[in-house]
Design a protein around this nucleic acid. Structure first.
Length: 110
DNA sequence: GCGGTGACTGACA
DNA sequence: CTGTCAGCCACCG
């Protein structure tokens, strides 16, 4: 593994549009590294680039990965809300079936 | 080398 | 809805 993998993961994170989110697993998959969700998490924890939209990355179930109440948790929730993403109880509004049709791709948020 | 530890996941109970 | 559990893999003592 190496810098190349980390770079691809960072690129995948930077590719998440404003107001949208993706899971660690998805980020890894888009980086060409399927099943490497943990690596994606590691890369983010090691990241120093302040311009990286790390807050758009969540767990597969839509919950924020940090423990509730922690600094990271609060900052991520705040950053998400700042760009219009609804965060309720540490979790991003999931793609509830009844909505339109194909919002299963990425979770856009009103 | 070995065991513990995560910004993780999908399957199953 | 909550909880386990087996995979997962880089890192660290």
């Amino acid at each position: 593994m190496g810098v190349a993998d980390a770079e691809r993961i960072l690129a995948a994170v930077r590719a998440i549009p404003r107001g949208q989110v993706a899971s660690y697993g998805e980020v890894a998959r888009r980086a060409g590294l399927p099943r490497r969700a943990r690596l994606a998490a590691r890369v983010l924890s090691a990241n120093t680039d302040p311009s990286l939209p790390w807050h758009r990355v969540l767990r597969a179930d839509g919950r924020i990965a940090f423990p509730e109440g922690s600094h990271g948790f609060r900052e991520q929730a705040q950053r998400l809300r700042a760009e219009g993403v609804a965060v309720v109880g540490g979790r991003v509004r999931a793609p509830t079936r009844q909505g339109s049709d194909l919002d299963a791709e990425l979770w856009a948020t009103p």
